[in-house]
Design a protein around this nucleic acid. Structure first.
Lengths: 401, 401
DNA sequence: TTAGTTAGTAAAGGTTACTAACCAAATACG
DNA sequence: CGTATTTGGTTAGTAACCTTTACTAACTAA
């Protein structure tokens, strides 16, 4: 939906369009009922099936009756759905509920968490593509990586396949899908519109990998996947932003529980927005004072290494944090975010920088807001992108998150 | 869903939470399958019915077969649904399609646009509450207002009811619902959490009005409703932001076609976010350099009246626009908005101010972005909030927008 | 032992949307 | 002019789905 509507949005920079005329009712707008929006019985069933999986995924060890109460369908229907799921081996019976209370004892159910595998890839690091095999829980079972320093274009695509070959060979359970977090702009079909570092332009990665391995594939931007991972496995709320700091600065934004893609699939690209009104270093993009010039780790490390003492280093970090806070203020305020999470090198981000950001946000946004705002580091460490990729597969294949 | 998940998001300002531990899988999260998420046959039917209405609403003068092709259901099903809708008088037959082509001529359908009325209210102006009666098209049929200068609390509620009494008496067709755009924070249930100007705190306006008139009521924040109105009747895209400038500065944000509420129902509240890093006038909120100190019309008009000539006035307006651009840069970049629309006094916003904002956005965000960005004034004029309220009713009652 | 409670299954029923087949009414064409 | 073709819309029957009702199983409480 977003895609279509975005595409048909008026393009071009008509900087002004002064008018005061009566509203022309909107019926002239092109038809845009998204295909597949209709609900047929099987769609309804699939939806309800996903609800059952979701309920079990979150609170394993429930009985059919528990699920029925939580989902709002009858015990009969839930039994039927669970029957299907057990036949597919997605759900297993754990045995009889141990506690003693009146009535027939319940048969506890759970997702078959170790019965299937998911593969998640992170293509965002410069030196290597990293990947994991997890179970349905997101528990990492296997790890792999391929060195890709200086590798671009088709060779980079080959590296992705090599890594997938390796991980698929090491997966002990059937793989329900592949998730790939790629740098650059990625559209809703999993086509990498533009990833300069890998020299990918319009590469339909999701389709290519899907056809090669005959498995469901989810490709999305790395920072967006990180946001999704933080939300599911890091416990973040429904209105949150995840800032990734590394060689560049990117982010993923979740609003109302939904990942934001933006009108041109470039949501979260905050690295080249100018911060403040007092200049700044020139940036590779041609402007000066972009967020990246303040925050990207290569520049920060140069500055830190030139600092005479710890106090000077802390001041540098704090200033970087302040710049991040200045940049985030309008976003946090406009979206009324409940949570901002930082991901990147702990030793750089975790201390004075985080404090500087928190203080700046506090001093520059409304009191009502920062009372509810949580600012913290991610708890997922370097796995944040691959875990996000795993969540995307879980969501796409099972409707679970 | 947003509500619940937002509520259960961790509160408090734990400014830091340093950690590197393995992710604790998310299953500990409280069960949160939103009630009513299940799909029963009647829900599916209601959804499909809304698709039919939506198709007809956008492109009136379609045949049943046209609708079937667009929605993706069979002619048989569409005929059945249309039969229901005709029985309810929501859809009417226009007659035989005039053009000549092979096959049985089609019977054209349309929403019964003049068969029902909607009432929209705008409580955001200081001197008066304004309201309209429209048909289903959003065409204004009647207008009304009540003076409310200095009126607050229960008296303001009485004024709302007086205005509604007046408009209901003047509505010639059955009213399908009431939409009310209120200043302040409004939650998803239509409770005005806080509207200082009206001295409303925790007022369940939607419930009160709904019980009093026994009609469906939609209450939401005025700027949010304006955004919804601009999207439906102003032709704005799926990722847009509407900035309302008046005594204060507020906004409504639409992301992926969905209105943003925020973790505390305060999304869009950008008036008290500090702009830039070079000071600014003190603000009533206690900070200095808030967006409102640069942009709110009372202050702007004071400055303009002190200006010696037109050039000085234009410089003042341009600077205000620049400040808006500085503030919007991170939001436009982070959300990859496709459209930013200004609403407020045309003579203040329409000229140099808008230009200043456009130039500032261009110079402070990524080139890839502002190529797709449209910045313009609304075409809906002073009706923007009431029309948004009408759209909220259309969406809530008919699933149409 | 009896009553009451809870889990799970079975049978029957009502909705929903589908397919297949049909009629209606126009154009296309020999 | 008459037949074939095309398109719109309806009728009849079917499959899928969830519900209600009723049942069995298995436990606690007294």
């Amino acid at each position: 939906m977003t895609t279509e509507e975005a595409r048909q949005a008026t393009a071009g920079t008509r900087a002004q369009q002064l008018a005061g005329a009566r509203p022309a009712p909107s019926r002239a707008r092109a038809a845009a009922v998204r295909p597949g929006a209709r609900v047929r019985p099987e769609h309804a069933r699939r939806h309800n099936r996903a609800l059952v999986l979701q309920a079990l995924y979150r609170g394993g060890g429930m009985s059919r009756a528990d699920v029925a109460r939580e989902v709002g369908l009858t015990r009969v229907t839930i039994s039927d759905l669970v029957g299907d799921l057990i036949a597919e081996n997605l759900v297993i019976e754990l045995g009889i509920r141990p506690d003693s209370r009146p009535g027939k004892p319940a048969t506890l159910l759970d997702i078959n968490r170790s019965g299937f595998s998911i593969i998640g890839l992170d293509l965002s690091h410069n030196a290597a593509f990293r990947g994991v095999v997890t179970n349905l829980d997101g528990t990492v079972l296997e790890r792999g990586e391929v060195a890709v320093t200086g590798v671009t274009g088709d060779a980079a695509l080959d590296a992705v396949c090599a890594l997938l070959d390796d991980l698929l060979a090491r997966a002990n359970a059937p793989v329900i899908g592949l998730g790939i977090g790629s740098p650059g702009l990625v559209d809703l079909d999993g086509t990498v519109v533009s990833a300069p570092n890998l020299d990918w332009h319009g590469l339909p990665l999701q389709r290519i990998v899907g056809e090669r391995y005959d498995l469901p594939v989810q490709v999305a931007n790395d920072a967006n996947m990180a946001a999704v991972g933080e939300r599911s496995f890091g416990g973040a709320g429904a209105d949150m932003m995840l800032i990734r700091v590394g060689r560049g600065v990117g982010s993923g934004i979740v609003v109302g529980g939904q990942l934001v893609y933006g009108s041109g699939f470039a949501a979260g690209e905050i690295g080249h927005v100018v911060v403040g009104t007092d200049g700044g270093d020139p940036c590779a993009c041609g402007k000066s004072g972009c967020l990246e010039t303040w925050l990207a780790t290569p520049r920060l490390e140069v500055r830190l290494s030139a600092a005479p003492d710890d106090a000077a280093r802390e001041a540098i970090l704090r200033e970087a944090g302040e710049r991040l806070g200045i940049s985030l203020g309008p976003v946090v305020g406009a979206l009324n975010l409940g949570e901002v999470v930082l991901a990147g090198p702990q030793n750089v981000l975790g201390g004075a920088l985080l404090e500087g950001t928190a203080e700046t946000l506090r001093s520059r946004t409304m009191a009502e807001l920062h009372g509810d705002l949580t600012l913290r580091m991610t708890t997922l460490g370097r796995d944040i992108v691959v875990l996000g990729a795993v969540v995307m597969v879980l969501t796409g294949q099972l409707g679970v998150s």
